[in-house]
Simulated assay, not measured.
Amino acid sequence: METLSGTVLTGRSFEPIRGRVVVEDGQIQSIEEAETTSTDIILPAFVNAHTHLGDSVAKEAAVGLSLDEAVAPPDSLKHRRLAGATRSDLLSAMRRSLRFMQRTGTAACLDFRESGTAGARALREAAQSVDADPFIFGSGERSVLDVADGYGASGASDDDFAEERTACRKRDVPFAIHAGEPDPTDIHPALDLEPDLLVHMVHAGQEHLERVADQSVPIAICPRANTVLDAGTPPVRELLDHTTVALGTDNVMLNPPSMFREMAYTAKQFDVTAREVLRMATTAGAEIVGLNCGIIAPDRRAALLVLDGDSDNLTGSVDPVQAVVRRATELDVKRVLV
């Protein structure tokens, strides 16, 4: 049994209480109000709702390129770099990104893994020695579902993914697809596939939002990556008003997979509250794929992040949720328990 003390951000509303979290056998046993001198801030570990960890072999390579030049299949810089990487280099690069995520408070990520079954197997191997778990959305041949946790489609304009969608239904695993990143033309075709997750939705209009709400489709947004690629700005407030929204960092070659940076950017650029942003960075991603984390409550997995509330950066903060979302950095991490 282990006890973590300080200001605990509890439940779906992240209500701060002074007290302790009791952990046993990898689960949260209880949250107890109690007097404590600890200045630590205890929150759920992050769930990064959209990554492309394979891109770790090409960090900064796409700076200054357009969306199509950088990432569009099959001939973009990203896909050329992936094709040219040795398996050893790919494993090392992905493992390093996972290790960075673990050390900076991320317990899990929802990764779109290129290169079919071989790509999914490579990510499984890369993650073996790291405590940040990738939920793998495989690609390519349908047999990738023998290895991956679900299927991640590049976009409805790239191919007909009806058979892959059917295969996911038969196996009862999630089907996710990019939509509305370069323009809105692929959003309705993506929704026709009845996906379990849409990614980006930068160019979503009212007609798309109504369908998203009717179909109860959650959305992963990646605002920093959209900015780097000059793809536009997702209508975050409108998306939140219609469905579950989760936060992801997208391509590692564009930005580090830092949820601190993604939260601060989102909180300061959009009409959202700090609690909504923290929920997007923790609870939402976990719930989309059925992970038992992302919230501090009894019987949940003990995936927890402890920040030093007395750090030079955080000391004096009057609101712990605002401090976590808008101010905290990797330097404030005291401990990651996963």
Rank of each mutant, 00 (worst) to 15 (best):
G26H: 11
A156H: 09
S88A: 13
Q322V: 15
V324R: 03
S139T: 10
I295K: 04
A303Q: 07
R237G: 14
S317W: 14
G26T: 12
A190D: 10
L53C: 08
R326H: 08
D186W: 03
G119K: 07
R171N: 01
A213P: 03
P223L: 05
A126R: 00
G26S: 15
Y265I: 07
S216G: 12
C109H: 02
D319C: 05
L91K: 11
L197M: 00
V324K: 03
A148T: 05
A85E: 06
D25S: 11
M1E: 11
V71A: 05
L278D: 09
A302P: 02
T233Y: 15
V236K: 02
V245R: 00
D89E: 12
D271W: 10
E194C: 12
A281C: 08
D250C: 13
G11P: 00
R80C: 05
F112T: 03
Q322H: 13
L193A: 04
S129M: 14
S129D: 13
V338G: 09
V202R: 02
L304I: 11
G205I: 00
R81S: 06
A167Y: 01
Q206K: 15
M259C: 00
D319A: 06
L110F: 14
T39Q: 09
A93S: 09
E32I: 14
R169E: 06
D271A: 15
A264Y: 04
L91F: 14
E181M: 06
A297D: 11
E238W: 07
T117F: 03
A61I: 08
A162E: 12
G84W: 01
S88P: 03
E276S: 10
P174V: 08
L229C: 06
A34Y: 13
A302R: 06
S13W: 12
G232Y: 05
F270Q: 05
V130A: 04
L123S: 01
A126Q: 00
S311H: 02
A120D: 02
I41V: 09
E125K: 11
L90G: 13
A83G: 06
P195E: 15
I17L: 08
E32G: 06
S216L: 12
S317C: 10
S216E: 15
A302C: 00
S38T: 06
M259Y: 03
E35V: 08
D183A: 13
N313F: 07
D160R: 13
G19V: 05
L77R: 02
N313A: 00
E207H: 10
V277I: 15
L305F: 10
M1V: 14
V130K: 06
M259I: 04
A49Q: 07
D131I: 06
T266F: 04
H203G: 01
R279N: 01
E163Y: 03
S97V: 12
L77N: 03
Q215C: 02
V22M: 12
G150E: 02
A213G: 02
P235Q: 05
V21P: 03
I41T: 00
D214V: 09
